[in-house]
Design a protein around this nucleic acid. Structure first.
Length: 277
DNA sequence: GCCCAGGGAATCG
DNA sequence: CGATTCCATGGG
C-alpha cells in the first residue's frame, strides 16, 4: 500500500488523540505501526492517520470524503470541550470524573459501521483484544471483498452462507452460532439496521438482545460504537472495577443522560491504564 | 445457582 | 517455567 501525496490535513484539533481513540477498546481493525501512525480499514477503505500535536493527516482520502464521511467517523463534528464541561458540572466537580477526563482528554467515540460492530462485539464477549482482532481479521481475509490494501468486513450474506462450521474454523469458538444467528436475522429482516436507528436506545437494546449471544453489555457497545448512541453505557470488567473502586456507595448513572457513554469511555480508559489490578 | 463452551493473553506460583 | 485465571452470554 503506497500513499503518494494522497492525504488531507486537519488543523487546530482539540480534545483529540488518535492514539487514545484507537486504544480505548472501541475499534479492532486499526493498529499503530513503528512510526506511531495508525492504519486500518473502515467503510471499505484502507486509511492511515498521523497526528503531530494538533494536526491530523489522513492518508488516502479527499477533502470531499472527509466532509461527507470521515469527519463523522472521527466525531469531529461534536464539541467535546462542551461535553466535558457538562460532565464535570453534572457531577458537581467529582474528582474521579475530572481526573478521568484529564487522563483520556483525547478520546472520541468513533461512529463505526453497524453490522461490523454487531459482529465485533459478539466476538468480543469473554475474549481479549489481541484475539478479537485476530478473529475479525480472519473473517475479513476469508469472507470479505478485497480492496486496495486489505479486505472489507464481510456482509451478513456471505457469513450466513459460510455456515457455523466454517465460521468455527476462524477460531471464534462458541460465538460462531451467535454470528450465524445475527446474519440470519439480518437476511430475513428480523433484525433491521435502519429500524434500530429509529428506535429509542432502550428499545434498540431490547431489539439487539433478541439475537443469540447479545446481552446488555454487547448491545450497549454496539449502540455506542455503531449507532452513535452516546447514552449507551456498557458495563464491562473495567467499568465495574472503576465504579467499585471510586463509588463504593453507588453511582447514579441516570444524571449523565445522553453523554453517559462518553463518560463511560473516560472511566474505562482511566481505570484500564492507571489502576494496576 | 453452577458449570461449560474455545482459545489465547495475562497473571500467578 | 507450567498452572491457573480471565472474559459475557446462553444452555444444560
Amino acid at each position: 500500500m503506497i500513499y503518494i501525496n494522497n492525504y488531507i490535513e486537519i488543523y487546530n484539533l482539540k480534545d483529540f488523540s488518535i492514539h487514545q481513540i484507537f486504544d480505548c477498546g472501541q475499534c479492532f481493525r486499526f493498529d499503530a505501526d513503528e512510526n506511531g501512525d495508525i492504519s486500518g480499514i473502515a467503510y471499505g477503505k484502507k486509511i492511515k492517520f498521523r497526528q503531530i500535536n494538533d494536526t491530523l493527516r489522513i492518508y488516502n482520502i479527499t477533502n470531499d470524503e472527509y466532509d461527507k464521511l470521515w469527519k463523522y467517523y472521527l466525531s469531529l463534528d461534536i464539541d467535546y470541550s462542551q461535553i466535558k464541561r457538562e460532565l464535570i458540572q453534572i457531577s458537581n466537580n467529582d474528582s474521579t470524573i475530572a481526573a478521568a477526563i484529564e487522563y483520556g482528554h483525547g478520546i472520541r467515540i468513533l461512529r463505526q459501521e453497524p453490522w461490523e460492530m454487531i459482529c465485533s462485539f459478539i466476538i468480543s464477549q469473554n475474549n481479549n483484544i489481541p484475539r478479537i482482532k485476530k478473529i475479525i481479521s480472519a473473517m475479513a481475509f476469508t469472507y470479505g471483498e478485497p480492496i486496495d490494501g486489505g479486505y472489507m468486513f464481510p456482509s451478513a450474506d456471505v457469513l450466513y452462507n459460510a455456515g457455523t462450521e466454517k465460521l468455527m474454523e476462524l477460531k471464534m469458538g462458541f460465538r460462531a452460532k451467535y454470528i450465524y444467528d445475527a446474519a440470519e436475522r439480518i437476511l430475513t429482516g428480523k433484525l433491521d439496521i435502519d429500524e434500530i436507528k429509529n428506535l429509542d436506545t432502550n428499545s434498540a437494546m431490547n431489539k439487539l438482545m433478541e439475537v443469540k449471544g447479545i446481552g446488555p453489555k454487547v448491545a450497549s457497545c454496539i449502540l455506542l460504537f455503531g449507532f452513535g448512541r452516546t447514552d449507551a453505557f456498557p458495563v464491562d470488567v473495567w467499568i465495574r472495577r472503576a465504579l467499585e473502586n471510586h463509588y463504593p456507595e453507588g453511582f447514579d448513572l441516570s444524571v449523565f443522560g445522553k453523554y453517559a457513554g462518553i463518560l463511560n469511555q473516560y472511566l474505562f480508559y482511566f481505570e484500564r491504564y492507571t489502576n494496576i489490578r
